[in-house]
Amino acid sequence: MAKAVGEVIIDIEKCKGCELCIEACPEDTLALANAINKKGYRYAEVVANNCTGCANCAIICPDACITVYRLIMKKIA
């Protein structure tokens, strides 16, 4: 059995707070921050430590703000 763990890096200055990534994330990893970026948008941020690195958020993000890493761990039985 394999388990995937992921990390996303969000370029918050490019983020426009459209929430498409939040909707696309199957794990509810992301949410809008309460803070705003230089452009005045509430930006997306990671709020839970459960990212699997599926990259759905990055694929849907119109503004190419998200970079995704994924580590697949093989359990040794």
Partner: peptide, 8 residues
């Protein structure tokens, strides 16, 4: 080596 998506 773990990168799965980055902007082009």
């Amino acid at each position: 080596e773990n990168l799965v998506y980055k902007p082009p």
